[in-house]
Design a protein around this nucleic acid. Sequence first.
DNA 1: ACGCTGACTATTA
DNA 2: CTAATAGCCAGCG
Length: 130
Amino acid sequence: MPSAKRPDDQLRAVLPSGKKESDFFQQVWALVRLIPRGRVTSYGAIAASLGARSGARMVGWAMNSSHGATPKVPAHRVVNRMGLLSGKNHFPTPTAMQEQLEKEGIKIKDDQVVDFEKHFWDPTKELNSL
DNA sequence: ACGCTGACTATTA
DNA sequence: CTAATAGCCAGCG
């Protein structure tokens, strides 16, 4: 990706710093909820948007907590950096994620998003617009 | 209170 | 080129 080497620093400037660690989850959920239908993003992108250098793991953890989150969090739109449905195993059913994505018009092949870059939704770009 | 694990990513060997 | 390791932060045993 031709993105900057430190997008986190960029986003850090965009987002205020008065955030609490616990809010990290809320931030992740909010961002994921902003993902348009038929689009997907990666954990790293979300983490970077929040200003985390490599909090990708925390993003996944946030998804884990999003099970009872309100409103519902489209975690199925969040995949790893390679477009692989790494989190499908954590869904109610291992196929739910793929089914949902296919329902939104995204094609999945071998647990991987087809044309991932094409369907990739960059939160940084969206946040930059805000 | 301490340590491990984890829905990741990037770098080095 | 592929493979292995380190870094990250927060929840949980």
